[in-house]
């Protein structure tokens, strides 16, 4: 494992912990898109089915279990435990517009036409766009709490770091996965506008608020 991959994973872990801490400490899920979190739960569930078929390492298994577990805890917090604080009026992105095309694409463009492989491909494609309901919510309400911004920054950085990891692996290991790389690029590009706002506003102590 190279440094980019490790820091990327840690960034992903940090994002999830920030989100859980925000919800738990403030007893609120305000500003968080339940739809994006459902998509992430689907992403982890469909990607890590290989937990049942192959063992890579303790690190690999524990991270996978952590990601799946916390994604369900997050969805539970939003739709059950802290439901009264969930801002469903602003969480109106139509997820079927993501799931249906992504499902079709995974069916058509994959490495191997087998169930696990198609589900893996589906999860890679879906992850690349899963943040859209959350970004849509931020643009609709025109603001994001600082803690939500930190969460989004850590989550966005993770895939950007994976891009560096793939460049490294291409040069030093001859490893190249076109599906993951293209989806990773799409995913990172979707965050660019947010990254800009984060650097120009949040890091200077202001919260993100967009003109109405």
């Amino acid at each position: 494992m190279n440094i980019f991959r490790l820091v990327g994973d840690m960034s992903h872990l940090l994002a999830i912990i920030i989100l859980l801490m925000k919800m738990w400490k403030s007893r609120s899920v305000a500003g968080i898109s339940g739809k994006s979190q459902i998509l992430f739960a689907i992403v982890f569930t469909t990607r890590y089915l290989d937990l049942f078929t192959s063992f890579v390492s303790i690190y690999n298994t524990s991270m996978k279990v952590f990601f799946i577990g916390t994604s369900y805890v997050t969805v539970y917090f939003i739709y059950q435990h802290f439901k009264p604080t969930y801002d469903s009026n602003h969480d109106t992105f139509r997820v079927e517009f993501l799931i249906v095309p992504v499902g079709g694409l995974a069916f058509l463009v994959n490495h191997e036409f087998s169930l696990l492989e198609i589900l893996w491909t589906f999860s890679i494609y879906l992850e690349s766009v899963a943040i859209l309901p959350q970004l849509f919510m931020v643009s609709k309400t025109g603001e994001a709490e600082s803690i939500t911004s930190h969460y989004l920054f850590a989550l966005g950085s993770y895939r950007a770091l994976y891009l560096l990891n793939w460049i490294y692996r291409y040069y030093f290991e001859g490893f190249f996965d076109l599906i993951a790389v293209v989806a990773g690029c799409v995913q990172t590009i979707l965050y660019c506008d947010f990254f800009y706002l984060y650097i120009t506003k949040v890091l200077k102590g202001k919260k993100i608020s967009l003109p109405a």
Binding site: R5, H12, D50, S54, V56, S57, N60, W120, F175, A180
Partner: peptide
């Protein structure tokens, strides 16, 4: 092998 290396990532 290719398969294994891919699944090594998260």
């Amino acid at each position: 092998l290719e398969e294994q290396r891919k699944k090594d990532e998260l």
